[in-house]
Design a protein around this nucleic acid. Structure first.
Lengths: 199, 199, 199, 199
DNA sequence: GATGAATGAGAATTCATTCAT
DNA sequence: CATGAATGAATTCTCATTCAT
C-alpha cells in the first residue's frame, strides 16, 4: 500500500534516517525547516532527500500520510472496543502521540492533493466519525459534537503544550484530559456556534 | 521604560497604519508574510517599516505586545466582576478575539526578550493567575487547573478553528465553549499529568 | 510603448547596465548563462536583476523584444525605399547586427507567450512579409521564397560566423552576402522542399 | 592512436546502445539533455555511461567524432565523382543529415581538444577543402568561397529549419537548396568581407 | 562490469535589511 | 522622514560525477 519495488539495503536505511530526521524536525520546528537542515540531521546529502522525494511537499506528505495511516489503523481497531468512550479517548491519545505538530490542516489545505492524500484523509475522517458516533450513541460524548469537531481537535493537546517553554514532553496528556472532559456529556453547556461543515 | 519621545504627526499616523496592516496580515496569514506585503497593505514604503521597527521580530513583538496589553487591561477590569467564572470566560473570549493566530509562544520563546516583553508577559500572567484564582475560589473552575494552564489554552480556540478549511470566522467560539466546559469543576476527571511549571 | 512610470536615475542606470550585460552575455554565450554571471558583468547584485525582471525569461523576453522592435521599426522604414531588393538586404543586415545569436526561436517557442511577445512577433512577421513581397514583386527575389523563410534565415549569418573560432566580428557580412545571393532570382534552382507553414 | 582493446560482447553492445541514444537525444534536444535521460533511452544505467566515457564532454566528443568521421568518409568517396559540383551538394546533404544540431563548433571550441579531436577535425577540413577546390576548379562554385566557409556552412540548413516551430523534419533540404544557390558562380555578387582564416 | 544511490556544486528565486535619493 | 532600489544570504531543486552493492 506504500512501497512498490523493494529498496536496496542502504537506500532503505537512508530513507528511514531521512523520515526520522524529517519527522523530528517538523515536529520540533514546524514545516519551515530547510531541507538542508533535515539532511544534516539525517546525516545524508541534500541531494539524497530529493532522490527519495521529488519535492519538499512530497516529503511532508509522506510523513503526514504515514502518521495518519498509522493513526487511522489504530482507530479502526478501536471500533471493536466495547467501551466507545474509552476507545475515543484512546484514539485521541494515539493521535496526540503520532501527530505531534503535524496538524491535519496540511492534509486539508494541500494545493492539489494527490489521490493518496485524499484517500488517506477520507479514511481518517470516516474512522473518526465512526468512533464519534459510537461514543455519542453510548452516551459517552456530548450530543452536539461532530466527527469534524474531533478531527479539528486532534492536534490541540500538543499545540497547547507547545505554547509553554520547557514543557515536559508528556504535558499534552494534561490538556487532552481537559479537552476530553469538555467533550463529555456531563455538565455540557450549549455551544454558541453551530458545527463546522463536514470535511 | 517605554519609549516616550513624541512622534511627528505623520510618523504617528504611519505607525498606526503599519500596526493595523501588520496585525491583519499576521492574523490572516501568520508570521511568514513578507514585510513587503505588510508595507503594501499599509500603503507605506518598505523602508518606513524599518524606520519604526529595526527588525521584523521587533514589529511582531510590538504587535503581540499591543494585543497582549489590551487583553491584559481587559482582564484587569474583569477582576472586579462579581461572577468570577463568567469573568474568566469573558476574558478567554477577548483573548481569542485579540490574539487570533498570535500565540503567546512568540512572547515566551523570543531569543533574548526585551525588558518590555518580559514586563508585558508578567503583567499578563499575573492577571490570568488572578482571574483563575478568583474563579477557582468561587467554585467556577476545576481545582486542578492553574493560571499557566489557562495561559497556554488562550489561543487554542483559534488554532482548532484554523485546522478546518472554509471555517466560519466565528467558529472559535464553539471550541472555546468546549474547552471551557472542560475547565469547569462539574464532571472533571483527574488529570493524568501534573501542571506545568509557572511561567 | 515600453516604459510606464519614470525610473529613478540610479535604477535607470542599473537597468541599462543590466540590459547591456545581459545582451552581451546572451549574444556571446547563449541563453544558458547564469543570472549570477550577468549580474557580475553588470556590476550589480543578483537580487537587483530580479527587481527589474521577475524571471530570467522576462529578462530574455525584454532583450529580445527590444531588439526585435528596433529591427521591426527599421524594416517598416525600409518599406518606403524605392529599391525593394536593396531594402531587404539592408533589413537583413540590420537583423544580423541587432539579433546576433538571439534567434527568433525564442519568440516563437516561448511556453506561454505574453501578449507583448505575440504582438511583437506579429509586427515583425508582417514587416518581413511586406518587405519580401515587395522585393519579389520587383523581381529582386526568387519567386519561391516566402516571408517565413526569410524570418528563419535572419539569424543565419551570425550563426555561421559563430561556428568559426577567432572569427572577425564582422564575418557575418560575408555569409549574409552568400545567403542573399541564394535568395536572388538569377540562377535559382528549384527547391527540393515546399515552404514552411506561415508563422 | 585510437583505443584498440577489444570490448566484452555485452559492453560493446551497451556502447552501441548508448551512442545511438545519445545521438538521438543530442540531435533532438541539444547538448543540454541530461545523462540520466540518455541512459534511460539507452536502457542502461547511468553509471554505465561513465564507465564508457569519463565525462559528458567525452561522450559528446565521441558522438561528434563518430558523425564527423562518417561524414568525412562519405566526402572522401565523393572526391572521385566526376561532377564536382554535384559531389559537393551531395556532401552537404549528407552533412545536414549526419550532423543535425551537432554543429562543428563543438569540435572547434573544445577547451583542450584531444589528439583524436584534432585529427578528426583536420581530416574533415582537408576533405572539405578538396571537395571545394575541385568544385571551384570545375566552375561549379563561386571563386571567392573557401573550404573554411563551407565548413562553417555545414550545419546551417538544420539551424535555419530549427528556427521554425513545427517544421517538417526535412525542411533543411529547402535551406540547403537556397544556400547552395548562393554558393554557385552564376549571379554571385562580390562579398563584403574577406574569407575567414583557415582552420 | 553494471547498476542506481549518494553527493555537492550551482541555478533560479525570495526576502529581510541597508542605503542612496 | 519617506521611499523604494540594491544587496546577498538562504531556499528549493537539478544534474554531472562518484562509489557501494
Amino acid at each position: 500500500m506504500t512501497e512498490a519495488r523493494p529498496l536496496r539495503a542502504d537506500a532503505a536505511r537512508n530513507r528511514e534516517l531521512l523520515l526520522t530526521a524529517a519527522s523530528q524536525e517538523f515536529a520540533e520546528r514546524g514545516f519551515d525547516v530547510s531541507i538542508a537542515d533535515i539532511a544534516r540531521r539525517a546525516g545524508i546529502g541534500k541531494g539524497t532527500v530529493f532522490r527519495h522525494f521529488p519535492t519538499k511537499d512530497h516529503l511532508i506528505s509522506a510523513i503526514v500520510i504515514d502518521r495518519v495511516v498509522t493513526l487511522t489503523e489504530a482507530g479502526e481497531h478501536l471500533l471493536d472496543a466495547p467501551d466507545a468512550g474509552a476507545a475515543l479517548l484512546r484514539f485521541l491519545t494515539t493521535a496526540a502521540r503520532e501527530l505531534r505538530r503535524l496538524d491535519p490542516s496540511f492534509l486539508t489545505s494541500a494545493e492539489d492533493p494527490t489521490a493518496e492524500v485524499v484517500q488517506t484523509q477520507q479514511r481518517l475522517y470516516a474512522t473518526v466519525h465512526a468512533l464519534v458516533d459510537r461514543a455519542r450513541g453510548q452516551g459517552d460524548l456530548r450530543p452536539d459534537v461532530t466527527g469534524t469537531d474531533v478531527v479539528a481537535l486532534m492536534c490541540t493537546p500538543n499545540h497547547v503544550a507547545g505554547c509553554l517553554p520547557n514543557a515536559s514532553p508528556d504535558l499534552w496528556q494534561r490538556y487532552l484530559g481537559i479537552i476530553f472532559d469538555g467533550l463529555r456529556p456531563q455538565g455540557a453547556h450549549p455551544l454558541p456556534h453551530p458545527p463546522p461543515l463536514p470535511l
